[in-house]
Amino acid sequence: MVKKEKSSFIGHIRPRQIKAGALRLRATFCLGGFSFLAFTILTITGVLLMFYYQPGDKAFATLSEIDSALPYGGFIRSLHFWAGQLMVISVFLHMVRVVWTRSYRPISELNWIVGVVLFVSTVILDYSGYLLRGGQESGAAASVGQTLLRTLPGGQALAIVFFGQPSPLNGSTINVFVWHIFILSGIAGFLQMFHFWRVRKNGGVRPL
């Protein structure tokens, strides 16, 4: 029965038994939970904003309309923004805790790599979200990102694939929109599920 439970997804998400030390707040500081909560809020508010947001030249105008004309639009957009900042901070602190407790050691080295990829995805998601705001600031941020990406081998092609053709006055493009809404969000969502599954499969967290 125990073996069957361990082999099932539900058994990993809601196991019958876990280590007593893993229940203490100091074991994780709930940083992984905060990260997932932030991602859930981002997903819900992002879907709501997607009904009205238009990438490209109309990006800044549509965001202004969301803030001023759409009922609770400003609240939803603010919630989306602050949830993004919470996720970046909580994922970073979560990785600091993992390094501090040396939880990256075998048998958790695969999950550590997944966590690193998740952190990079989170940072890029936050950056691409800033580009989607439109306006001169996002245009300048897109220019900096393009310059940095072009320093890499094959960076010119990568810059075109990710950024498209942003202008100095507007960093919002359909390319950035697709990456932010579908590709990066999908990758982050899948990796989080895999990450949680591996934590359970490896025996849970290591208390401090």
Score class of each variant (00 low, 15 high):
residue 129 G to S: 08
residue 117 V to C: 07
residue 136 Q to V: 07
residue 132 L to T: 14
residue 139 G to P: 01
residue 116 V to D: 13
residue 121 S to I: 14
residue 122 T to S: 03
residue 129 G to H: 11
residue 128 S to N: 07
residue 138 S to W: 03
residue 115 G to W: 08
residue 126 D to F: 02
residue 139 G to T: 07
residue 139 G to Y: 03
residue 118 L to P: 00
residue 145 G to F: 02
residue 133 R to T: 14
residue 135 G to C: 13
residue 118 L to V: 11
residue 139 G to C: 05
residue 126 D to M: 02
residue 124 I to L: 12
residue 124 I to C: 02
residue 119 F to R: 15
residue 144 V to R: 02
residue 123 V to Q: 11
residue 142 A to Q: 05
residue 122 T to D: 01
residue 118 L to G: 03
residue 116 V to Y: 04
residue 119 F to D: 09
residue 135 G to F: 04
residue 113 I to V: 15
residue 130 Y to R: 11
residue 142 A to M: 02
residue 142 A to N: 06
residue 123 V to R: 08
residue 118 L to A: 06
residue 114 V to Q: 09
residue 130 Y to A: 10
residue 115 G to I: 14
residue 115 G to V: 15
residue 123 V to D: 13
residue 115 G to H: 12
residue 120 V to R: 10
residue 125 L to I: 15
residue 115 G to D: 06
residue 114 V to H: 04
residue 112 W to L: 11
residue 138 S to E: 12
residue 127 Y to K: 09
residue 120 V to E: 10
residue 129 G to A: 06
residue 137 E to H: 07
residue 134 G to N: 11
residue 135 G to V: 13
residue 141 A to D: 05
residue 145 G to R: 08
residue 121 S to G: 00
residue 142 A to K: 05
residue 130 Y to I: 14
residue 143 S to D: 03
residue 131 L to Y: 05
residue 135 G to S: 06
residue 118 L to I: 15
residue 135 G to H: 10
residue 114 V to C: 05
residue 143 S to F: 02
residue 113 I to Y: 02
residue 141 A to K: 08
residue 122 T to G: 00
residue 123 V to P: 00
residue 143 S to R: 08
residue 137 E to S: 03
residue 123 V to N: 11
residue 133 R to F: 01
residue 139 G to D: 06
residue 144 V to A: 03
residue 141 A to S: 05
residue 125 L to D: 05
residue 113 I to D: 09
residue 114 V to K: 08
residue 132 L to V: 13
residue 143 S to N: 02
residue 117 V to E: 13
residue 124 I to F: 09
residue 119 F to A: 14
residue 114 V to W: 02
residue 116 V to H: 03
residue 117 V to S: 07
residue 135 G to Y: 04
residue 120 V to K: 09
residue 121 S to P: 00
residue 129 G to K: 14
residue 122 T to P: 00
residue 124 I to G: 00
residue 125 L to V: 14
residue 135 G to R: 11
residue 142 A to G: 02
residue 136 Q to D: 07
residue 126 D to H: 02
residue 132 L to N: 11
residue 140 A to N: 09
residue 127 Y to T: 12
residue 126 D to S: 08
residue 113 I to P: 00
residue 124 I to T: 15
residue 138 S to K: 11
residue 126 D to P: 00
residue 130 Y to V: 12
residue 138 S to P: 01
residue 129 G to C: 04
residue 128 S to E: 15
residue 130 Y to H: 09
residue 134 G to C: 06
residue 129 G to E: 15
residue 131 L to H: 03
residue 133 R to W: 03
residue 132 L to R: 11
residue 130 Y to M: 12
residue 142 A to I: 10
residue 112 W to S: 06
residue 114 V to L: 10
residue 112 W to C: 06
residue 119 F to E: 14
residue 142 A to W: 03
residue 135 G to N: 12
residue 125 L to A: 06
residue 137 E to K: 11
residue 141 A to R: 12
residue 136 Q to G: 00
residue 119 F to H: 06
